[in-house]
Design a protein around this nucleic acid. Structure first.
Lengths: 236, 236
DNA sequence: CGGGATCCCCCGAGATACTG
DNA sequence: CAGTATCTCGGGGGATCCCG
């Protein structure tokens, strides 16, 4: 019988170079690993929650990745005792040290995003991460500004709290939002500043409830411009 | 034919999520891609130079990756005319925008590095990147400090110039170095501060020519501490 | 000789059924 | 619920070959 793969000679994973970048690629460069870490860094998760948040991941691969991440010291497997005998995966300090790195990757990749491809969805973890990274990449908001808002894109529901010049983004709806934005594919153009906030609300590409004046504040805080990327297929 | 296949399940490279991090993983998460970009960001390179700097890369894979990177707008293929009809691969602005991201990856990964594994080598591009990233991660050097140095680790030869509070690292030897450091595996402990500079020079783990007093400056500028990573195999 | 393309083999990833 | 077991398939490793 095949060994459980715990000690598979990793030849295929390594690069043979003594280099920080190569090592990083070996540890977090495997397929699905970055998205698993993204979800766990939003909040500790159980196996079934990870499966739900990562549509399409093969369950055996998720199990393998979780084992690898634990062996590499990036996450910890916590078996809770008591009535709720759930197993929870939680980032270690070393895993949390990846946050600036994942933020840099997210920010660069977010500038590549344009119209969603067929079948592409927005998960809650993706939206939390995207908004948080966008806010960090811009200058902090005016400390005088304070509001709470809920954003819904497809199935994803997240909320953000802006106060004291700081921004907090987390899963779920805000209990008493000053602003609610519900959007689809047009939300990206709205965030990029392509669509004027007022126009976006008017033409239905986003739906707004609450104080419309806050929309401009929202864009200023969470804006992510498109990269000036050029389409590859140049017309002849 | 493939009965289930036409469910349009995500192409092998894609994740089916509208997410910056997912996009970044799709574009630069393929095997060898990060190291190719690392080399090209040190200096534009020709195909054969890339092959030489990436030991073990299959040539067909390199050709494929270069095509993908060009299609994704990260690099440009420049066919030089004239006597030297070489083809040179050069990062675009969009590719160069990855520098902060690769730096973050390098820095995180460098903290993971311990004793080189069997067969692991140090390439020139790896050393240039490693020293540059390390210097950026520390507070800038005192503007009053100025020196040039050459560092040799295995086959890799690079030089650094420190002046005006800034640090420049590039391939090749310095023409008139104030300091020369030649090292092997012990160089990493030296950089981490595990070995005192004086002791390292004394016990032969590194070899120094030039002003020994500059060694302390060198360490202060290029130090990369180990992460407090815990070995996975805990003794019973 | 630089810059690839072609071939074969195998491992890792996808899909799904199954189990403690 | 939290994973294994098992199959298939495509991408990557490795060597060789080819073309201008």
């Amino acid at each position: 019988m095949k060994s459980t793969g715990s000690l598979d000679t990793v030849g295929n994973r390594e690069y043979g170079q003594y280099c920080g970048l190569a090592r990083a690629a070996e540890v977090i460069g495997q397929r699905w690993t970055l998205l698993i870490l993204r979800d766990l860094l939003v909040a500790p998760r159980r196996y079934s929650e990870l499966v739900a948040g990562l549509p399409g991941i093969p369950t055996n691969l998720l199990a393998t990745r979780l084992r690898e991440l634990e062996a590499d010291g990036l996450i910890r497997r916590e078996a809770r005792s008591g009535a709720d005998r759930a197993i929870v995966y939680r980032p270690t300090a070393r895993g949390s040290a990846l946050i600036p790195t994942l933020d840099a990757l997210s920010l660069w990749g977010a500038a590549e995003l344009r119209t969603p491809r067929d079948g592409e969805i927005v998960t809650t973890a993706a939206l939390v991460t995207g908004l948080r990274v966008a806010a960090r990449s811009n200058v902090g908001p005016d400390p005088a500004i304070a509001f709470g808002c809920t954003v819904r894109i497809g199935e994803a529901v997240v909320h953000a709290v802006v106060e004291n010049g700081d921004v907090l983004v987390a899963p779920g709806a805000h209990p008493e939002p000053d602003l609610q934005i519900t959007g689809g594919a047009g939300f990206r153009d709205f965030l990029a500043g392509v669509t004027d906030p007022g126009a976006a609300a008017a033409d239905g590409s986003i739906e707004v409830q609450g104080d419309p004046a806050l929309l401009h504040q929202f864009v200023a805080i969470f804006q992510v411009p498109y990269s000036n990327w050029v389409p590859r297929t140049v017309p002849a």
